[in-house]
Each structure stands twice: as structure tokens, then as C-alpha cells.
């Protein structure tokens, strides 16, 4: 597989959130505003990138039988670092993401990428994989939080979207809104997938018919 493909697969065909439905907790909890979504995505990408590089670099020296505990220690280290850096440089984001920053440790995507990719591949592909997955996850968070912020608070990245006092659907930034938004987005993606499959089937059918008639 080429490096470009390692990169794009995380964004589209294997998007961790929309396609593999991994890492659900933060995607529901902190997506009440686009700023939070971007912040979480960037923090997540940073940790994933660092842990993928470290694990890929050490893949030959980590004994197989204790690889999972080693991965957890490595991931937890980077999470602690990111946590402290965010506390120092982006204190507002740090407060609004709260407990979900340390919880990046138990985000199944990171351990999953370590186990499924970084320990089998070299550093360069692992970097591409981490960037692709990270950006894919960030985009997914931004999409969810954009829906929730615009509908629930009537703003986008803090700026008012609607003129005047258009009433906002408060429920969208309350907990149920997270479930509703993600559910609808997944349903929409399924629909698109179904339409695509149906089109392809139709195309195949018509090709087959043409072949039949030409015979």
C-alpha cells in the first residue's frame, strides 16, 4: 500500500468514528461546540502520532507477551504530556474538555492503531496512518459539533449564525443531542452507502444485460 493511501484511508474508508464507530465517548461528550471539537481532535492526533512513532520505533524490542502493558504505558505518557501542555498553553480549552483529556488514554482508537498498525509497520507508514486517522477523527468531531452548536446554541465557533433572536433547540447541546446527531449522521452515511451499492448493482446488471444482448 502506498503512503498516500495509508493517509487517506483514515479520513474516508476507515474513518475511526463514522466507519469503525470507535472512540464514541468524547465524540458525544465534548462536541457541544466546534472549538471543543477541534481542540479534542488536535490533542487526540498529537497523542496518536507520538504513540504510533514510539511504538513503531520500538516494535522490534518490545517483547510480545507484554506488548499491551507497554503500549498503555507509552500512550499514558504522551497523554500526560499533552494534558500538561494544554493546561499551560490553552487553559480555556483545558477546562472545557475536562476529564476527557486524560481519558484519551483509554480511547480504543489509539490502542487499536498500535496493535493493528504501528507494531507491524515502519515509522513512515505509521506517521501517515496516525495523521490520517487523527485528521479523520478530528473532521468527524467537527461535523458533529458543528451540527450541535449551530442547532443548539445558534452559533458557529462562537459567532452568531442567525440574525435576530431565532430560538435555538437547546436539546442539541444537552446530552441527548449528542446521541441524536451521531445517530442521524451514521444513518445518513449508511443511506449513501446503500444508494451507492444499489447503483453499482444496477450498473453491473445493465452491463450484464448488454453483454447478453450483444451475444
Amino acid at each position: 500500500m502506498s503512503l498516500g493511501k495509508e493517509f487517506t484511508k483514515g479520513i474516508f474508508s476507515e474513518n475511526p468514528l463514522f466507519r469503525l464507530t470507535l472512540g464514541l465517548c468524547p465524540s458525544l461528550a465534548i462536541t457541544t461546540s466546534v472549538n471543543n471539537g477541534i481542540g479534542m481532535g488536535v490533542a487526540f492526533t498529537g497523542v496518536l502520532l507520538a504513540s504510533n512513532i514510539a511504538i513503531s520505533a520500538m516494535r522490534k524490542i518490545i517483547p510480545d507477551s507484554i506488548r499491551i502493558p507497554s503500549y498503555i504505558v507509552i500512550i499514558a505518557t504522551f497523554v500526560s504530556m499533552v494534558e500538561m501542555l494544554m493546561h499551560a498553553y490553552t487553559p480555556e480549552l483545558f477546562t472545557s474538555l475536562g476529564v476527557f483529556i486524560p481519558l484519551i488514554v483509554v480511547n480504543c482508537i489509539i490502542l487499536g492503531r498500535a496493535e493493528a498498525f504501528a507494531n507491524k509497520n515502519g515509522i513512515l507508514p505509521s506517521i501517515m496512518d496516525a495523521l490520517g486517522m487523527g485528521i479523520g477523527y478530528t473532521l468527524a468531531l467537527v461535523v458533529i459539533s458543528a451540527f450541535r452548536e449551530v442547532l443548539g446554541a445558534g452559533t458557529f465557533m462562537g459567532y452568531a449564525v442567525f440574525s435576530g433572536s431565532a430560538p435555538s433547540a437547546l436539546i442539541m447541546i444537552l446530552p441527548p443531542g449528542g446521541f441524536i446527531t451521531l445517530g442521524c449522521i451514521l444513518a445518513f452515511l449508511n443511506k449513501m452507502q446503500n444508494v451507492k451499492v444499489a447503483k453499482k448493482a444496477k450498473l453491473n446488471q445493465s452491463i450484464a444485460q448488454q453483454q447478453l444482448s450483444s451475444n
Partner: peptide, 22 residues
């Protein structure tokens, strides 16, 4: 409906439960 099967309907059900818990 086919597109809602699996995860989407589960999430929407969870949303309704969450509203109930509100």
C-alpha cells in the same frame, strides 16, 4: 428502515433514554 439498522437506531434509542433521564 435499512439505513437505520444497527448503530444509528441504537444511538437514537439512547437519545430517547437520555431524554427520559433528563
Amino acid at each position: 428502515p435499512k439505513s437505520l439498522q444497527g448503530m444509528p437506531i441504537a444511538l437514537i434509542t439512547a437519545a430517547l433514554m437520555s431524554i427520559a433521564f433528563l
